[in-house]
Design a binder for these strands. Structure first.
Lengths: 123, 123
DNA sequence: CCGAATCTGGACTATTATGGTCGGGTTTAA
DNA sequence: TTAAACCCGACCATAATAGTCCAGATTCGG
């Protein structure tokens, strides 16, 4: 619980690698997979998602970890509370839930943390 | 990913409920389970863990969400990076991993968020 | 003091998410 | 032009999660 998924880890490794190489460099998914001993097929999928979301095109200095997570996980955001993540109708305690509102604030603080770290700072 | 587990949600609901009732009140797990439509057996287990870690005995104003998560999940802390959570030897990329160090800082910020919210603020 | 309600805690099952694999067709670059 | 790399959907194995069942111990109200 509360771990980055392998996909996100791999994505971060790949992006950081590309950022460290400089803007002129060309990198293949194969090369990165070999270098860091990451299963190629998995990394390839991750990078496809990143490419589709134009993550790879961005300036590392302005590329935040949050954007990468969202691109890979597909969700609009990291959502701590399950009631919020799914459709609230499905939540059996949705009207008796007393912890939702306080946790939304906490949520925002978490988001801020991920918005705060850029790839540029990781090279 | 990055959701509180049901166990933690249930634990928070229960603790908040008890805190809201005031210090004199007696609450049973059964009562809380019924009230919030939580499976009793599951809540019971969660509260057992909380009781063993003396969470229930603490002053809500000083009881942080972080302490509750740790008590329920058993882990010393929320650990973002998988390499760090398990034994580092098992990590196949443990010496080529370039993202570990930057993420540790992020980790600390996350921890801070959970250390920042007390039950007292949730009633 | 007795019985009902509640708690304890292990074992077990179901469901889901994750991590990883396979393979066939397509593109790209030397 | 052909080998390497990519795309992408389908698939599988494992592990974590959520929940259930139950039998024995405990507690509490009367």
């Amino acid at each position: 619980m509360f771990q980055l998924s392998k996909k996100v880890e791999y994505g971060l490794i790949a992006i950081r690698h590309m950022a460290a190489g400089g803007p002129g460099q060309i990198h293949t998914a194969k090369e990165i997979a070999d270098r860091y001993h990451i299963p190629y097929e998995l990394l390839a999928k991750v990078m496809q998602k990143l490419a589709k979301n134009y993550i790879l095109a961005r300036n590392p200095a302005e590329l935040k970890v949050a954007a990468i997570i969202n691109a890979i996980e597909g969700k609009p955001n990291v959502t701590i509370i399950q009631c919020e993540a799914e459709s609230p109708e499905n939540c059996i305690i949705h009207d008796t839930c007393t912890i939702k509102n306080p946790l939304v604030k906490l949520q925002l603080n978490i988001n801020r943390v991920f918005e705060d770290l850029s790839i540029g700072e990781m090279v």
